[in-house]
Computed example of a mutant assay.
Amino acid sequence: MFNRKKRIAICAAQIPFNYGGAEILVEELNNQLNMRGYQSEIINVPFKWYPKEQLIDNALQWKMVDLTESNGEKIDQVICTKYPTYVINHPNKVVWLFHQHRPVYDLLDTPYTEFSKTGNDLKIINHIRQIDNRTLAEAKKIYCISENVRNRLKEYNGIESEVLYPPTKLDGSYKEGNFEKYIFSAGRLDPLKRVELLIQALKFINKEYKLVIAGKGKHEEKLRDLVVKEGVEDRVKFSGFVNDETLINYYSNASMIFFAPKDEDYGFITIEAFKSGKPVITTNDSGGVLEFVRHNGNGLVCNPNSREIADNINNLIENQEKLFQLGKKGIETVKYINWDHTIKSLVIE
Score class of each variant (00 low, 15 high):
4 R>F: 09
9 A>M: 07
9 A>N: 01
14 Q>Y: 01
15 I>W: 01
30 N>W: 03
36 R>D: 08
37 G>K: 11
43 I>Y: 12
48 K>D: 09
50 Y>T: 12
51 P>Q: 07
61 Q>T: 11
61 Q>A: 04
69 E>S: 15
79 I>P: 02
100 Q>N: 14
101 H>D: 06
109 D>W: 11
111 P>K: 12
112 Y>W: 10
115 F>E: 05
118 T>R: 13
122 L>K: 15
126 N>H: 13
129 R>N: 10
137 A>V: 06
139 A>G: 06
142 I>A: 03
144 C>T: 15
146 S>P: 01
152 R>D: 09
152 R>E: 08
163 V>Q: 05
180 E>W: 00
189 L>W: 09
196 E>H: 10
203 K>A: 06
208 E>A: 07
212 V>S: 00
216 K>W: 00
217 G>S: 04
218 K>C: 05
223 L>T: 04
230 E>S: 05
250 Y>M: 14
258 F>I: 13
264 E>D: 14
267 G>T: 12
270 T>N: 11
273 A>N: 08
275 K>D: 00
277 G>A: 12
282 T>F: 04
282 T>C: 04
297 G>T: 02
306 S>N: 12
312 N>S: 14
312 N>D: 09
313 I>E: 07
326 L>K: 08
336 Y>G: 04
337 I>M: 08
340 D>S: 15
346 L>Y: 12
